[in-house]
Nucleic acid binder design. Structure first.
Lengths: 143, 143
DNA sequence: TTCCTGAATTATAATGATTCTCATCTAACA
DNA sequence: TGTTAGATGAGAATCATTATAATTCAGGAA
C-alpha cells in the first residue's frame, strides 16, 4: 500500500498534472476526512500545514481535481437562482456540464418505500424531490 | 375560470401578501411560460411591462413566492462549492432548509432502467448521480 | 373619496464567493 | 545544473445576491 504521498503523485502523473506541494496538501486535506468539504474548510485545514497558501490556489486546484476526476463535486448544478411555476410533483434531469434543466414528469424510477427505508430516521420524505445528474445530448456529443 | 390577475390576488390574499402591481407582474412572468426561469430572465421579461422595476424587487419577491409555495425553487442547494473524496457510486440526501448533505450508500431505490427510458434520448446516464430533497430530522422537528 | 400607516419599492452600496491578473517561483526534463 | 512551461500568491476584479435608507403605495378607516 502506497503512502498518501505516493498515491497522489501517481494520480497526478496519470492526469499530466505537476505534483506540487500545495496540490499534495489540498488533495490530502479532502481525502483525510470522509464527507463533504467546503472551500473554506479545505483552506483552513490546508493552512495549518502550509500557511502561505493562497485561497485562489485552493479554488484552482479543487476545480482541477474535479475536472480530472480525482474528486467529485457535490451538486453540480447552476449556481444561480432558478425558479419554476410548475407545482405538480415532478423531478429534474440536470446536465453536469452545461447545467441545463429538463423536467421528468413520470417519476416511477424512484422506489419511495426503499428510499424511506434507506434514509436516516426522522428525515422527512413526504414530498421527495429528485434531481438526476448526467450529460445532456449536446454535451455528451462533444466529449 | 378566473383571470390570471384574479388568480394571483386570491393566492396573495391567502398568504397575507399585499397584491402589488410588481408582484402581479413578476408572478405572471414566471407562470406565463413553462420551464425554468433565472432571475435575469424574469427581470428582463418584467421590465417590458414595468420598466421602472428594480432588480432587488425581483429577487425579494421570487424568494417570497418560493417561501410561500407559490413558486418552486429548482435545486434548492447551498450555492457554495462542495467537494468530496468518495468516488464510489453513491447518492445524496439534502435538506431543503439547512442544506445539509448526507450520503446514501445504498442506491437501489433508483431503477436505472426505468430512468433511462424516461429520460430524453441521448441523455448520458452512464453514471447517474441522484440527489433527493427533503427535510432533515432537526429541521422537520422545528416546523 | 381622502387620509393614514405599515409594508413595498427603488437606487445604490455592500457583501461574499469565485475568478482573474501578473509578477514570481518551481517541477520536470534535458 | 539550467531551462522553461506551468504553478503559485497577493490582491484586484467580477458576479450574483442582499442590505440600506429614502420614497412610494396598498388597503383599511373616517
Amino acid at each position: 500500500m502506497a503512502s498518501a504521498h505516493e498515491q497522489f503523485r501517481n494520480l497526478a502523473w496519470k492526469c499530466g498534472l505537476a505534483a506540487t506541494h500545495q496540490r499534495q496538501v489540498i488533495y490530502e486535506a479532502v481525502i483525510a476526512t470522509p464527507g463533504h468539504h467546503s472551500v473554506e474548510t479545505v483552506y483552513a485545514e490546508v493552512r495549518r500545514r502550509t500557511p502561505s497558501i493562497s485561497l485562489a490556489t485552493v479554488y484552482n486546484n479543487l476545480r482541477l481535481f474535479v475536472e480530472h476526476g480525482l474528486l467529485r463535486e457535490v451538486s453540480p448544478h447552476s449556481s444561480m437562482l432558478l425558479v419554476e411555476g410548475n407545482l405538480a410533483p415532478h423531478h429534474h434531469l440536470i446536465c453536469t456540464r452545461c447545467k441545463a434543466v429538463q423536467d421528468l414528469e413520470v417519476a416511477d424510477f424512484v422506489n419511495v418505500k426503499k428510499l424511506a427505508r434507506q434514509a436516516p430516521r426522522g428525515f422527512d420524505l413526504s414530498q421527495p424531490l429528485v434531481e438526476v445528474f448526467g450529460l445532456c445530448r449536446r454535451c455528451s456529443a462533444k466529449s
